[in-house]
Design a protein around this nucleic acid. Structure first.
Length: 495
RNA sequence: GGGCGCGUAGCUCAGGGGUAGAGCAUCUGCCUUUUAAGCAGAGGGUCGGUGGUUCGAGCCCACCCGCGCUCACCA
């Protein structure tokens, strides 16, 4: 088939003395630079060496045009038999997808496209699989129209390398992702917080409510878990005396997958001693604004057609108030019966949401959360949903916790960290009871963490930011799979 | 895990019981400023898989595999 044909071409090229897999090529320019630095009607011809993948070929006998694609985009090149001789015959054996290096001078064609007139052509890598190339045209309004674009989601995710070659716009999202993380890291570093690494393989998992992945260490003959959060280890480092630590890394949760959940996902967790959640709210607001400005040069965005501005101040509402406002129910004073009634009224499945706090959480998700479009902090959560957060300093039954919401989605979660070892043990024991009642996501008791708290942990503010979701928000992507290079898929059975 | 939808050439898609189709890509010939280059010709398919119904199955039925959307769960 097609691949076989390409093998033949490859051997033919080798026969002609063209090594199809070169060792290097001294690039001194790129597609963007060639076009940006072209001087109209210049006496002097500018010579450049560029390398890239052939994405289109238009052959006209003894001369051809082709488009080369590099990291910066595409540029047209012009090849003539008169100029390159034998290389032109070799070029006839080259295909869309081949990677070549060229030397030539920059000129403008009759139709006005800045191009490179090739004086030397080298094959750098022969492609033996046909690329699903789309063609682009411009309609009467000057809009770019792509014909037969490579759109099969399964193929795009499984063969992301192909997706990246042929769908040039997606590359941009991933570049943005990388820059968002860099900007965050730079910001945290500038504040003097130390980036650290803690174990991914853990004998106990903790720091969140989730089911873990399990693995086994052979020489220790021990079951280990892939972490579901970094939290407990990072707080142990705060006990150790660091002035603020953070970690940007993968967490793993063995749960359902959908457009906002991938089994492995990237989280940033930050812990700052001597601060509380009020301080952290301010911090998050400014950090996000900073990232937006550095990466995008703006703080106003559109997500799924909705306008979102990260301008200060973000709305701050307490969970109690916002639920009361929406449903008329005071979750602190209302009886269990009233709560159940209200929940039912708003369509909460009260059989699934067992326990008062879970019911409140569910009621919140259904009634309030979808309406939190502009950046908002929801403050003060029911105590038993948050076994690692400090009790509220004035309101009984709540903890000092906030979540940031944008476009109806949670983007961060933070609390004044619980540093009372006796209270922490009580809370863990509450989780054990939940586990005994069948809650597979309840926390395990981490004795070493309690021991660390017993040595004394300063009052600390902690924060977790879901990086993938932040990237989705800022790049207007509706599926987490479109901000992760290689989203989790079932294994291919055979090729 | 449930519901809905999809799977046909390398890619994008038609075809819904009676000889497997189109455009792009590929191959051959012509063509030294083209740009979805053009002109003339050609090749290319286990129609996701396995069974079944039928004289006959991409097409109808069952099961399986994969993907998407969605619900449940979660960040």
């Amino acid at each position: 088939m097609l691949i076989k044909r390409r093998f033949e071409e490859l051997e033919e090229l080798r026969g002609k003395g063209f090594e199809p897999y070169a060792y290097s090529f001294a690039v001194d320019s790129n597609s963007e630079d060639v076009k940006a630095n072209f001087i109209e009607n210049s006496e002097e011809k500018r010579t450049v060496k560029i390398a890239g993948r052939i994405m289109a070929i238009r052959r006209m006998g003894k001369a051809s045009f082709a488009h080369l694609q590099d990291m910066k985009g595409r540029v047209q090149v012009y090849l003539r038999k008169d100029d390159i001789g034998d290389s032109y015959d070799a070029f006839k054996l080259m295909d869309i997808g081949d990677i070549v290096g060229i030397e030539g001078y920059v000129f403008k064609t009759k139709t006005g496209e800045i191009s490179v007139h090739v004086t030397d052509l080298q094959l750098l890598s022969k492609s033996i699989r046909p690329l699903p190339v789309a063609k682009e045209t411009t309609d009467e309004h000057g809009n770019k129209v792509v014909h037969d674009q490579f759109v099969d989601k399964e193929l795009r995710y499984r063969q992301r390398y192909v997706d990246l070659i042929v769908n040039s716009t997606i590359k941009d999202t991933f570049i943005k992702r990388s820059r968002i993380i860099s900007a965050m890291r730079n910001y945290l570093d500038a504040k003097g917080y130390l980036e650290v690494e803690t174990p991914i393989l853990q004998p106990l998992y903790g720091g969140a409510s989730a089911r873990p992945f399990m693995t086994h260490h052979n020489s220790l003959d021990t079951d280990l878990y892939l972490r579901i959060a970094d939290e407990l280890y990072l707080k142990k480092l705060i006990v150790g005396g660091f002035d603020g630590v953070y970690e940007i890394s993968k967490d793993f949760r063995n749960e359902g997958m959908d457009r906002t959940h991938n089994p492995e996902f990237t989280m940033m967790e930050l812990y700052v001693p001597y601060k509380d959640y009020v301080w952290m709210m301010q911090f998050v607001e400014i950090m996000i604004q900073n990232i937006c400005t550095v990466v995008f040069g703006k703080i106003d965005f559109v997500y799924e057609g909705k306008n979102i501005s990260f301008k200060s101040p973000w709305k701050r509402v307490s969970m109690v108030d916002v639920i009361k406002e929406k449903t008329g129910l005071d979750i602190l004073k209302g009886t269990n019966e009233e709560l159940k009634e209200t929940a039912k009224k708003y369509g909460v499945d009260i059989l699934k949401a067992e326990g008062r706090s879970k019911l409140i959480d569910e009621l919140f998700s259904v009634t309030v959360q979808p309406e939190l479009i502009e950046p908002s902090f929801v403050v003060d959560y029911p105590l038993d949903l948050s076994p690692l957060a400090k009790k509220h300093r004035t309101i009984n039954g709540l903890v000092e916790r906030f979540e940031g919401y944008v476009a109806g989605r949670e983007i961060c979660n933070a609390f004044s960290e619980l540093n009372d070892p006796i209270d922490q043990r009580d809370r863990f024991e509450g989780q054990v009871r939940l586990r005994e009642e069948g809650d597979a996501e309840a926390h395990q008791i981490d004795e070493d963490f309690i021991r660390a708290l017993e040595y004394g942990m300063p009052p600390t503010a902690g924060l977790g930011v879901g990086i993938d979701r932040l990237v989705m928000l800022l790049t207007d992507q509706s599926s987490i799979r479109d901000v992760i290079f290689f989203p989790q898929m079932k294994p291919e059975v055979n090729q």
